[in-house]
Computed example of a mutant assay.
Amino acid sequence: MLAFDGPSGAGKSTAALEALSLLGSRAALVTTDAFATWASPVSWWPELVSGVLEPLAAGRSGSYRRMDWSTGVPRPGARVAVEVPEVLVLEGVSCGRRSVRPLLSLLCWVEGGTEAGRLAAAVARDGEAQRAELRKWQLFERGWFAVDGTRDAAAVRLPGTAGADQPKH
């Protein structure tokens, strides 16, 4: 398993899609966007474990119900099947959480520049109507990552794609 974690708007999806492109048909992608809601940013994890991670570990296909945001309010959507891949790519906030790290082959942290730059990227992606929720999400994830120690646990740190205000290394 390969995980791309980091703050909202950092460029995790872009990095994960690049990895998928390189891995081709040997890989499958599961994103935390399919599970998380404003009210439940990380507590959905047991659904991913029981629906996807455990079946795949046993050599069986898994599945999960994707969150449908088409009305602007999250509700359970279509069921998504996940065939047993050679490499499972996890992408999104909290996918590199402490409880899954022993199972990961690689944890990549995507930096993504400043909070302001990441917020601008997330608003550009999700729409101006989501700005207040995205800002609350940023505050939540700041605390989550500090407690979980995700960034420090990552073997690889990527600069991300949140815009021109990337930190200079």
Rank of each mutant, 00 (worst) to 15 (best):
P74L: 01
R101V: 08
D165N: 12
S99C: 11
A122Q: 06
F145A: 12
V82K: 04
S61W: 09
V30I: 06
R66V: 06
V93S: 14
V87P: 01
T114E: 06
A16C: 02
T161P: 03
R60A: 13
T114L: 02
A154H: 07
D165C: 09
R125D: 10
E141T: 05
S99R: 11
S13C: 01
Y64I: 07
L29Q: 02
W44K: 08
E133A: 15
A28Y: 03
A58N: 11
E128C: 00
F140T: 05
D33P: 03
A154V: 08
L29P: 00
K168P: 05
A27I: 00
V123C: 03
V82L: 12
A146S: 10
E83L: 10
G72N: 08
G160H: 05
R125I: 11
C95P: 04
D5G: 10
A36W: 13
R65V: 15
D148M: 03
R79S: 13
L22K: 11
E54C: 00
C95V: 15
V156N: 10
T31V: 02
A34I: 04
E133T: 12
G127L: 14
L20N: 03
A154Y: 08
T14R: 07
K136A: 15
P167K: 07
V123M: 06
S94Y: 14
S61A: 15
S40Q: 14
A153M: 09
D165W: 08
A16D: 03
A122F: 07
M1N: 08
P74K: 01
R101C: 00
G143D: 13
S40M: 14
D165L: 12
V93G: 11
R131T: 10
L56P: 04
G9T: 09
G62L: 12
V100I: 15
V82T: 06
L22Q: 14
V93N: 12
F140N: 02
V80D: 02
V87H: 13
A120D: 15
L23F: 01
E18L: 13
R79T: 14
G112I: 00
E111R: 07
R66I: 05
G51E: 05
T32I: 02
A57E: 15
G113P: 01
S43E: 14
D5W: 12
G9R: 05
L17Q: 09
V30L: 04
V84G: 03
V147T: 13
D5Y: 10
F145M: 01
W109S: 04
D68S: 04
T114G: 06
R118Y: 03
F4P: 04
A132G: 08
E54Y: 02
K168S: 14
R118H: 00
A16K: 03
S99Y: 14
L119I: 06
S70M: 02
V84C: 12
D148N: 08
S63Y: 12
H169K: 03
T14A: 14
P76M: 10
L119H: 00
P85W: 06
T161H: 13
V110Q: 03
P41E: 00
A120R: 13
A116G: 10
A162Y: 05
